[in-house]
Amino acid sequence: MTSTINPPRATPDPIVPKPSRKQKAVGIRYGLMERMAPYGYIAPFFALFLVFGLFPLLFTFVVALYDWNPVGSQTFIGLENFSRLFQDPRFWNASGNTLSIWLLSTIPQLLIALLLAHLLNHARLKWANFFRMSMLLPYITSVAATTIVFAQIFDRDYGILNHLLEFLGADRFDFRNSVLGSHVLIATMVVWRWFGYTTLLYLASLQAIPRDVYEAAAVDGASGWKQFIHITIPSLRPVIIFTIVTSTIGGLQIFTEPLLLSPQGQFSCGAMRQCQTLTLFLYEQGFGQFAFGYGSAIGVVLFGMIVAIALVNFLLSTRLKGAH
């Protein structure tokens, strides 16, 4: 397993600036410039991060303590936003929807990607480049365009999927206006968008496994399935954990799909809020209702969830390391 990973070296033999004769001639200022130069190279990122990343994140915690109206007044109310939030059925509804969509998208996506990566990882596969490239097409398609196409395909009256259902003798199904249907619809879009990308990540890890491992297994008479269970899955474990973490953090950010499934001017994703996610709820409160304080409280809760996920992931990966 460790052979597939290559953690960055802590100190990859950096160059120690040795003042040459020429540099000495130029004097101390040149040396000082050289010593300060690395900070200049990383400065653009840190400057932008401070202004547009760290400060807004910290300020979210401050705004969350206020009844903050961008055009009206700002009143300090302590933790009231949070106590309101935890009693708000809309918050629990959005959390449930987010969880449900995450489960419906992550599990199929990982299974499909595992299978396809295993199939693609064949030394004698023809058209390998065509398959790899076609799987990246969804990734370059915008979420907005994806949502419009899938909403059309799944449409009750005009969608080709419902025509197919009808043709097969089943009833038409109104995906958008049912809880499970709308979740399946959004999850399908997420899976479509990401399974190819995940497949390529898995494939990259698989290709690092020396070919003789499979050769030895084949000589020992291990079938394709046995090779899959005993070679493919264990060697992919780190990258599988990684994709679960990224898809979880991505799942908390699902926004565009439910927004474009909402009727114009609304941010509820349907009359019953059947597919409103947490990020869409944040947007609705912040920019639909102009409740900046309440919206920021949702942001703080999202931050808490991400920290929790990172901790679980950290514990899992250290335990995995300990086990080996």
Binding site: S3, T4, I5, N6, P7, P8, N121, H122, A123, R124, L125, K126, A204, S205, L206, Q207, A208, I209, P210, R211, Y214, E215, A218, G224, Q227, P238, V239, I241, F242, V245, A310, N313, F314, S317
Partner: peptide, 24 residues
């Protein structure tokens, strides 16, 4: 290492690497 661990795939070996063998 939570984020970093799975990332870099080592440079592929010189010989044609990657993949199972046998008939597709």
């Amino acid at each position: 290492d939570t984020v970093v661990a799975p990332v870099p795939t080592p440079p592929l070996p010189k010989r044609r690497s990657g993949g199972r063998v046998g008939r597709v």
